[in-house]
Each structure stands twice: as C-alpha cells, then as structure tokens.
Amino acid sequence: MSPRVVFPNKILPYALLLPQLVIVGIFFYWPASQALYQSVLREDPFGLRTTFVGMRNFQRVLADPNYLNAVENTAIFSIAVAFFAMSIALLLAVMADKIIKGKGIYRTMLIWPYAIAPAIAGMVWLFMFNPAMGTFAFMLRSAGYAWDPLLKGDQAMILVIAAAAWKQISYNFLFFVAGLQAIPKTLIEAAAIDGAGETKRFWTIIFPLLAPTTFFLLVINTTYAFFDTFGIIHAVTGGGPGKSTETLVYKVYHDGFVNLILGDSAAQSVILMVIVIVLTAIQFRYVEKKVHYG
C-alpha cells in the first residue's frame, strides 16, 4: 500500500469517530467487561452477597452434565445444519451453472428464505410438522410412522435442523454461484476436450477450486448455527423435550434470564466469546488473504 494522501485536520477525525465510539463503549465494552467480571463472582440466591470465586464458575459449568449435553447438541446441530445447507446449495448452484435459460428466475425463486427470520422459519416448519394439525405430520402418521417432535427428542432435533438448514440454503447458493462463476471456463473446457466427464470434472477441478468459498461458508454457517438459530430453538422447542435441543446460546439465555444463575450464565458467555473469537480469527485470516487493498 502506497502512503495515502490525507487531510491535515487534527480535531475533525475525533469528532467523526465519536458517535461510533460512544455507542460501542456503552453497548459493547461496558457489558462485555461486566460479563467477564460476573464470570468470576458468585451471588447468593437472594442477591444479597457477592463473593469472588475465581475460576470456580468455569469449573462448575464445564463439569455440569447439562452443559456437556448442550455442547453435544450444539455440535450435532451445527454440523448437520452446515452440511445440509451447504451440500443442497452446492448441488443447486452446480445445476444452475449448467443451464442457459432461466438462471435469473431460479435465483429469484431460491433467495426468498434469506429474508425470513429464523424464528419464523422454525414456526412455519413447526406448523407443517406439528402433531396436532400439521399436514406433513398427518401424512407421516398415515404412513405408519410415529411422528411427534413435541415429545421425542431426536425428532425435535431433526425438525429444528431442517428449519435452520432450509433458511440458510439461499445464502450459500448465492456464494456458490459466485464461486462457480469465478472459475475460469477455459480450465473446464480443456478437461472436457481431454474427455473428462461431468462428475470427474466436478470432483477434480470445480470442487477443489471452490475450496475458498466452501471454507468461508463453513465458518459463516457454523456461526449461523451457533448464534442466529436461537430464534428457531426458542420458538419451536424451547430447548425441549427434556433438554434434547438445548444449545449453548439457548442455555446462556435460559440460565441467565429464566433460572437467574448469573455467575454460571456469565461464565458460559465468556466460553462462547472464546469460541467466537477463534471462529472470527479463522475467518479474518481467510479474508485478509483474499482481499487486496489498493
């Protein structure tokens, strides 16, 4: 980067930064530092006394079977959502890359769910699959399958995974389409002339060249499954039945706002912060490599 030409003003830049710094300070740094502080404190049940307990909140949280259950649920949920949302989107994007007519129409028809709130996506799927009057639940049961996501934990998990993955297909589709367009057509034509069939061309040329896009989407989808899907869990299952769909973010919310165990909730927040920082660091390394500053 060549040395930039700049304005010689000395006070103006501070004034320009002020609005963002004020908002970030009050609504980000203050609460984030509170979370760190709370995570090493323990309040008695009446909120009368607060004692410093060091790392004990973390130890208790990490030893809590309910927390480990939430870790497991989050892992299953995130992997399944990322896998289904990405593989379906990739299949559709590869198909869209082959056709000549109607690309625009398909894209328009496929991007709708991007605009839909995760919670609404969840409620719509629940409407179709709820045991009382859901049409698809009715069909499943007519086919002899004991379907009741409100009582059976694994079926509840399948339902929230389906809703979460469904909502994310559009986003992944757009990125895969862009990624496919960036692959030089000459490479693929050369392989075609050499007699490589479509499957072979996909696995040996297209898929490896898509790796940056795939990796980027993997991080984005993981972040999405971790955080943005709170609405789906809260609206559809409320973490239940039992605790079979309780994810990490849901547990932070539930322990903090419903059970009011502030120390544990704060310690969980801090653990989540660490996870996000790692994810962001991975993502940013990738972004830095891809972007060329002028």
């Binding site: 979370a35 955080f227 932070v252 903090g256 996000v276």
Partner: peptide, 15 residues
C-alpha cells in the same frame, strides 16, 4: 466484530 449480541445478553440487558 468478534462478539455478537447473543454472547453478552445479560450484561447488555442490565445496561
């Protein structure tokens, strides 16, 4: 950039 609101809900709520 690193911390979505979901991670710091309780203290932000207090603010």
């Amino acid at each position: 950039l690193m911390l979505p609101v979901e991670v710091r809900i309780l203290p932000t709520y207090k603010v």
